[in-house]
Amino acid sequence: MSAWSQPPSDEDHMKAAFLFHFTQLVEWPADAFDRGGNSLFLCTLEDDALYDELENTIEGKQTGSRTIRIRHIHFFQATRGCNMLFISKRESKGLSLATFRNLPILTVGEADEFLSSGGMIRLHLAEDKIRFDINLEAADQSHLKISSRLLLLATSVSRYSGMGEGR
């Protein structure tokens, strides 16, 4: 089995917490939510340890006026209704994030090239701690507003436009 199938680790726990706090510090456009806008859907592609952690810790939690719902999707294209998408390192291979351009979906990934391929927030490890980088351009194109408090904590903030070069 892969490393992701291990029981929830501290790292998974922290990742879940990060994902939750991202929802607190990102503002979605008003039309991003269906059905009255009471739920915020966080979708994952893989049914792994992190998914279990998310289910156990932040499922049903309030973020602002909304309740977080964890949704497991099987197809990369079945993102309709998702407000946030987490793409682990493994899944990101061979995927094109161009599909999500201009859609109000906050994309969070782990791959090294995640931001340059159009992702918004990239998690990485630095000195055994989870840190994150932000691609502000991608967020802007999707009309997601990232709080300055979140930008302040980012290891780096860049402006990659889609597949293009940074800054």
Partner: peptide, 9 residues
């Protein structure tokens, strides 16, 4: 510092 605490920074 709330966000710093949240993101363990």
């Amino acid at each position: 510092t709330a966000a710093s605490l949240a993101f363990n920074d």
